[in-house]
């Protein structure tokens, strides 16, 4: 009987823990789901700024247990000054949730590169 109690206790204390690479890859897959939205946002910017290109580097946190992507912050020094492209990325990150959530929070840094299609 005591073994059942112990097993139950262990189960309660255990958590879904990703390896760092798994955490990164799962997060990237989550971000990739917004590729079409970002492409549309970029195309709209190109209508007014046909040569707009650049990088947007964002740090954010994935909350433990909820998987919510929170506190996105743009790296001002390394990112393009184009406010629209920055806005495209920040808007795309709104409401993203990593599923299943991890029991550790993730402090992530990702880069988006906006490039013109080759004609």
């Amino acid at each position: 009987m005591s073994r059942w109690w112990t097993a139950a206790l262990l189960a309660a204390m255990s958590c879904a823990v990703r390896s760092p690479n798994m955490y990164r890859d799962d997060t990237r897959r989550l971000l990739e789901s917004k590729r079409a939205v970002l492409a549309a946002c970029y195309d709209a910017e190109l209508q007014s700024q046909p040569t707009a290109t650049g990088r947007v580097i964002v740090r954010f946190t994935i909350e433990r247990e909820t998987g919510k992507l929170v506190r996105p912050q743009i790296d001002d020094l390394l990112s393009t000054p184009n406010r629209t492209l920055r806005g495209c990325v920040l808007d795309a990150l709104q409401g993203l949730v990593l599923m299943p959530p991890d029991d550790r929070s993730g402090d992530a840094t990702f880069t988006w590169e906006f490039q013109l299609a080759q004609r």
């Binding site: 204390m13 958590c15 997060t27 970029y42 910017e45 299609a117």
Partner: peptide, 30 residues
């Protein structure tokens, strides 16, 4: 059981920092 739980607890509560070195490339059509 208590020892195992104590050993696993830090893994559950710590945060993990990671970054992806390859950018997500968004291609636009001017």
């Amino acid at each position: 059981g208590t020892l195992l739980a104590a050993a696993l607890a830090p893994a559950c509560t710590h945060s993990l920092a990671f970054s992806d070195t390859s950018p997500i490339v968004i291609t636009g059509t001017p």
